[in-house]
């Protein structure tokens, strides 16, 4: 066991961990941040995406010890300071961009990472940006609309509507 320290959602945390402890285990089991989910074991589904030092990372495919000292943001850290949902979260609700909610945290984190580097993505860019996040419920239609709305493009830019 070694002590691993990092900043999670703005808060400094420190825990004894094994070498094999994955970041997602550190967050879920260690810190009780169960908003980050595990949907596969081959790094394909994206339910576990969080941000490490500002970039999206599959937290099931990185060891906690390897991001020691880093700044981690999870879905629990995406709300506004007053506790209300952030713009992207609100857009997901407005556009019905989620159903069972299981892929949703990872989807929101990946969408946020996309908007950080591309504030007004096209429909194709949104779909490409979410390539690593599998949703089995929505058919992605309303997720695309939600990201459009959050980027201030309403849904006007979505071709088929």
């Amino acid at each position: 066991m070694t002590k691993v320290s990092m900043t999670v959602n703005g808060k400094a945390v420190s825990r004894e961990t094994e070498g094999r402890t994955l970041l997602v285990q550190f967050l879920r089991d260690g810190m009780g941040l169960t908003g980050t989910h595990v949907g596969c074991d081959t790094s394909q589904c994206g339910a576990c995406v969080v941000h490490v030092d500002g970039v999206p990372v599959k937290s099931c495919t990185v060891f906690a010890a390897d991001v020691a000292g880093g700044h981690v943001t999870t879905i629990e850290g995406m709300a506004n300071a007053d506790g209300t949902m952030g713009r992207l979260q609100q857009a997901f609700q407005d556009c019905h961009g989620l159903q069972c909610g299981f892929c949703t945290p990872g989807m929101v984190m990946s969408a946020a990472a996309l908007l950080a580097v591309n504030p007004t993505p096209t429909e194709a860019e949104i779909r490409a940006g979410l390539e690593g996040n599998i949703c089995r419920c929505t058919g992605y239609h309303n997720i695309v609309r939600a990201v459009m709305q959050a980027s201030g493009q309403a849904s006007a830019a979505v071709a088929a509507e």
Binding site: S43, G46, V49, V52, V55, P56, V57, K58, T61, V62, S110, A113, L114, G129, E131, G132, N133
Partner: peptide, 9 residues
């Protein structure tokens, strides 16, 4: 390669 999160690491 892969997807955005894979490309981060």
């Amino acid at each position: 390669i892969g997807d955005p999160a894979v490309r981060s690491r």
